[in-house]
Amino acid sequence: MRALICDQPNGYESLRLAEMPEPQAGPGELLIDIAAAAMNFADTLMAAGKYQVKPNPPFVPGLELAGTVAALGAGVTGFVIGQPVMAVVDHGAFAARAVAKASDTFAIPAGLGFPAAAGFPIAYGTSYGALVWKARLQKGETLLVHGAAGGVGLTAVEIGKALGARVIATAGGADKCAIAAAHGAEDVIDYKSEDVRERVKALTAGRGADVVYDPVGGDLFEASLRAIAWNGRLVVIGFAAGKVQQIPANILLVKNVDALGFYWGSYRAHAPELMAGAFRALADIYAKGQLRPHVSHELPLSDWREGFETLLGRRSTGKIVLLPQS
């Protein structure tokens, strides 16, 4: 089968498109014909050997996919061959076929196409877990979402709105702010031209945001610490700005702030029982029309280099999807 292969984790530039043997489904696994595979910032880290998961080379990058079930491993129930599914894998999505654990595979909500479904599990799963499990976001609270036009940020805007929160979104540039507003943000802040701290304070009559969802870090994290409400919860999702910030503990103490780290992928190993319930809840929210997955780029697998460059250049909104069959 055709796949994007990493021979050594020296960065995405060293990847190559080639033929390789097809994987086989083992006990508790499914073999999936991949129609679409979503790109994530974590893919760039894995290709550079900087991600938490470090597969032995050669390996195929790619963490999430959508397609149809091609074969069932021993002991797998609840799925049938030919069924449309979406799945999360440790690696292997940038190929024609991949193997996924049954516990990491989910039915695609009715009406959701393969490209949108491919980018659904990690982004929506992350935002649901961060806002519901970790931040305990309540109806009527104010949620501040950074990177609100990006892959995970946009899903946090939608889920926050669905949970009844007032959503303030930050994004870089008028076009990205407009996308965040179109997906439910009540107020938007262009961090390229506006002072985030001062705007949040003005929008909340000086109180600040109850919950901050931050996949960006860097200067935006510093602004968040000063724009969060007393007894607020600040959830660290990632470091897209490239800087791993240090948290001044005195600010946490004075404002009674909870600083919470959230890595959704670890729940697959430590609390897999939460996953099925989360995706049932997300399917219900989607069925109500409150989630509108956004894919800004659909590229054939042969254009993988363009995908990485677009992702790293922060020129995408929502998700970038590779199409292995094109």
Rank of each mutant, 00 (worst) to 15 (best):
L131R: 11
P57E: 12
S302H: 09
T68K: 10
L72K: 12
D43Y: 08
G206F: 06
L220D: 06
M1P: 13
Y191F: 15
Y124H: 10
A107Q: 04
A107C: 04
V216Q: 03
V132I: 14
V60D: 08
L274G: 02
L154P: 11
T68L: 04
A135Y: 04
Y263R: 14
A107D: 05
L65R: 07
E298K: 13
L143Q: 09
I251C: 00
G113A: 14
G153H: 06
A96W: 03
L252M: 15
A281P: 04
V257D: 08
R292W: 08
E222F: 09
F59N: 07
R2D: 11
D284T: 15
H146A: 13
D195T: 12
A229Q: 04
N256P: 07
V89M: 06
R197Q: 15
V76H: 05
A71K: 08
D175Q: 15
G261S: 12
G26K: 02
M1C: 09
D104Q: 12
V60Q: 05
A276P: 00
V80L: 00
A227E: 06
A148W: 11
M20K: 04
G140P: 15
A281E: 15
A185E: 13
G28Q: 00
G318C: 06
E64L: 06
P121H: 12
G26L: 00
F106R: 01
I237S: 00
V235A: 02
L45Q: 14
I81A: 04
G153W: 02
E141W: 11
R226N: 14
P248G: 11
G78N: 05
P57Y: 03
G238Y: 01
G307Q: 06
A95F: 03
T68S: 11
V99G: 01
H146Q: 14
R226M: 07
E306R: 12
S14G: 09
V235L: 01
R197I: 01
Y128K: 02
V196F: 05
L154Y: 08
D258R: 05
V152H: 02
T77I: 07
L72D: 05
A156H: 11
G173T: 08
L312Y: 01
A98S: 11
M275I: 14
A87D: 01
G238Q: 04
P57N: 12
V321M: 01
G160F: 09
G62C: 10
I32P: 02
V244K: 09
K255V: 12
E298F: 07
G62M: 10
I34C: 10
L17V: 09
K134C: 05
Y191W: 15
I320W: 08
H146M: 08
A223T: 03
L234D: 02
D258Q: 07
G218I: 08
L31A: 04
G208Q: 06
L299K: 10
G75W: 05
L144D: 09
L203E: 03
F106Y: 13
I285A: 03
V167E: 08
Q290V: 03
D210F: 03
E13C: 04
D195N: 15
A182I: 02
A240E: 00
D43F: 05
M39D: 05
F79K: 02
P115I: 01
F59S: 06
